[in-house]
Structures are given as structure tokens and as C-alpha cells.
Design a protein around this nucleic acid. Sequence first.
RNA 1: GGCGCAUUCGUCUAGGGGUCUAGGACACCGCCCUCUCAAGGCGGAGAUCGGGGGUUCGAAUCCCCCAUGCGCUACCA
Length: 491
Amino acid sequence: MNKEEVRVRFAPSPTGHPHIGNIRTALFNWLFARHSGGKFIVRIEDTDQSRKVEGALESILDSLKWLGLDWDEGPEIGGEYGPYFQSERLDLYHKHVQQLLDSGHAYKCYCSSERLEQMRKEMAERKESVRSYDRHCRNLSANEQAKFESEGITPIIRFKIPLEGETTFHDLVRGDITFQNTELDDIVLMKSDGYPTYHLANIVDDHFMKISHVMRADEWLSSTPRHTLLYQAFGWEPPLFAHLPMILGPDKSKLSKRHGATAVTEFQEQGYLPEAMLNFMALLGWSLDDKTEMFSKVDLIKLFSIERISKTAAVFNHEKLQWMNGTYLREFSHEELLSRINPILETQLPDTVNRPISKEYASQIVPLIQERINTLTEAATYADFFFVEQPEYEASLLIGKKMTEESTLRALKASQEILPSLHSFDHDTLENTLRAKADELGLKAGQLFSPLRAACTGRTASPGLFETMAVLGKERCLKRIAVAIQKLEPA
RNA sequence: GGCGCAUUCGUCUAGGGGUCUAGGACACCGCCCUCUCAAGGCGGAGAUCGGGGGUUCGAAUCCCCCAUGCGCUACCA
């Protein structure tokens, strides 16, 4: 094999929406390929017909596209070593499994699943270490085989693991790893439905697609000696292996739906930025040094290396992702942020708000919320009062600290009187006027501002009062103040 | 049960014999800023480096044992 050219692959099976762990694997492969000037290949491992999930393929491809992990060969674009769907490569697998049969490295197995189940049960009862298969058909005579064939049993094909010796392979992350061959079972290569198992298809494809490095999750480590033996049986040189640390949920178990949103597409829907997602995922199992943690995609490509992949599984920390997303959000220019937020506003603002949303108006709001949101979707929930006709809230919200119903009413009415006379409704005018008014009323600035804030926004927390009022405009502020006074005024 | 891998603050991690009385980040707490909330700045608390034996003048760093966690143990990937 030509080890000069780096060719790596992301080989998902279309059995569901890819979660952050799957895509992290894709990311590391992609990063390594781009770093080394090699090729990144996507291969779909659809050899299990029963587990196929509708829409999973699209979800996988969409996740990659969203993050900008472009592939050089694979679905939609093809390539020199296609097809890139295993279900379209069945002939290749049959041909090679036959080769193994002919060379005595594989054999047909006629055991029923019932017998297998029974066998495993008995082994467990006898407290023997449970084996997946007892090699019952490994040395069947020609007569016995003919008998099973005549009964119409479709055999599966198993790999003949050497009965003795040991198998060692080198892992780029963990070093040399050795397994006793006696610990290895005669794995299934070809299933009775004519589809290969992962083990066979994987080896055949990696070989013919000239894959130089296999970077996959840690859960595959135990399968690697079997794969090594398979390469030997074929007389092929195996690729280099690098097993990536797993990503776990908060309870330290394998990531699953139980852990809430883990599908990459869900993060997209929740308003996370692809650049933040990418940065965050890169740090799950990889680091540059003891302090750097903000990495652009270009940085990552330049700096990524297998040597700095860690060995330990990582718990997925949602809070840190959120922080990082907010950091990216804050670094955007107003124009950039607007362009990201606008589509969210369109879809997530209440139905009562007229569409399309005015970009000009939204652009005034963006600077006010930029440092107060951590995700794009928060823009719609945080800033909705800018868009609705009249925010809903309880009258009690108007009465702030150190304020009573009476003083609140007085403050609101005083504001109602002075605001119409303002020639300009900008930040400074508002601030000067209102501060003077507070003085005049014998109130602290905050005592006056809080009922005004509640009246104008329907919230106790909002962007700066004067900025907010300026954006809302004199007319709307006055209207909302009037509503507030009504809420407090005895009927 | 067997086999494999792993084990540094709650979490992500730095560390590869002395510079570590273990560094950074998220989260947490306090202070500053301040019209609220954030953001930002400053500071704090938080890990006897899973435990026990070695090796060494000296170990988070090397070796062994144990414990724990995770993974694999399917005609799933």
C-alpha cells in the first residue's frame, strides 16, 4: 500500500441521527485528512437491512455539510473507488469470502440461532466464560455438509481464527495491544441474507479504497485483532489504526437519547453555531496545549495531530458548549449576527408578529442582545417583546424593589407626562430626561427605571432601558406605559 | 463471567522523573463595573494526581498488584 497518501474514511451506518460522538469521529478524520493533504472519504455501511432507518443517511450527510466537513469521495459525488454504499458492493464481498473459503480461512456454518442460543445458555450455566460460538461446524466432513445442504439450510460463513498464538497490532493512540487468539471467536463474515458483516465489508473496503489510517471509536478496539487476522488471511497489509476515546453522557455511559439532545442536527435546531460546535467537538479528546481552546477551522487543520489525541473517554459538557457558542456569537460583527439570527426570528417569533421580519428593525436589536444570548434561538425568546404588539405580564412585575404600588404609579405617570415633549427619542436624551425626573420625584434612578423597564418590555431583565426604548420608539413606549398604568389603576 | 482499554479539580484538559506547594477552561462563589440582566475585569474555593507496593537521591510522571469505570463478548455496526 502506498502509505504516502493519507486516505481516511468516515464509515457510518444509516441507523439513526448521528450524535456528537459519531460526528466527532468524522471531524477527527476530516481534520487529519485536511492537515495531511490527504483524502476524506465517506462510506455508508448499510449491511444491516433490518436496522436501516429512513432519513438517517440524509441526517448524516446534513450534519457533515452543516459543519463544513466536505468529503472527497462518497455519496452524492462518487469517486474512483466507488460505489460508496456497501449494499452496492455485494459481489466484491462474495468474491472475497469465497477466496477465504478456498484458502481454508473460512468455513460454512449451519448452526441455527436456536442452537447458538442454547449453547451460550449452557455455557453460562456451567459458569464457563461465554463464547459466541463453539466452532461446531469448523471441521464438518463433506458428508455432514452435504446433509445440511440437502436439508436446504443456508449457511453463514465464519472466519477460522487460529487456535493458538497471539495477535498484536499497533494503535497510534494506545500503543501495542496484544490478544490471545484463544480469546477470539470465529466471527461471522457472511450472513444468511447474503450481506456481509461489518468485519468483512470493512476490511475489504478499506483495502480496496486504499485507506491508510483507520480512525474510529474505542468500542472497536476489541474487534481489531480479528481484523488484523483477516488482513493476514487475505495477504493484505493492514492500515494504521487510531482508536478514539469515547464520548459519554453525564452519567458516564455511552451517549444515547436518554441524555437529551445529542444528535448534531438537534444542536443546529437549538441555535448552536457550526463553528462553535466544531471547536467544541475538537476539544473532546484532543488538545493543543494547556491553555488554548478557541480554534477556528483553519487553526484546527493546521494544528491537529494524532499524537495529541487523548486516551480517556470524555463526558460531554453541555454548559461549556453553551459558553463557547456565546463566545462565538459575541465575536461576530452585527451584520454577521443579523444574518444568522434573521432566519430564526422568521420561524420562531410568535405567529402574531407580521412577516417578513424587517431586517432594518432587527439590525437595531442585534447589538442590544448580542452579549445576552448564547444561542441563536435565544434571540427569538429574549427579544420577542421588540416584535409583539404588547407583551403579556402580571401587574406585580411593575413594582420593583423599594417601590410601592403608589410610587410606581406616580413614576409611570410622571414618565407619561414628560416623554411626549421630547423632541428626540434617543439614548442620551432619554437618559438625561429620566434621570432628572427621578431626582425630581425623589427616587433613585433604579427605582424609576425598573417600572419603566417592566412596562416597556414585560420583563424585569432586558437590554439597557434607554437603548431599548429608543428602538421601540416614543409611540410604542407611551402605549405600553399607558397599559401599565391601567394594570395598576383600580378599576 | 472472560478479554481489552482507561483512571489528574464536579466536567473538558495540561503534565511524559526534579521548574508541580499540579497549570488553563466551563460551572460555582465574591468583588468591581452598573438602570435590570448579561458581557467584561479582578479574586476565591475546588485534585493529598483511584488505592497499595516497588524502582530512584527524587514519581502525577517508570514497574507490579488491587479497585473502579467503560467497551467488546449478535447472522448490529
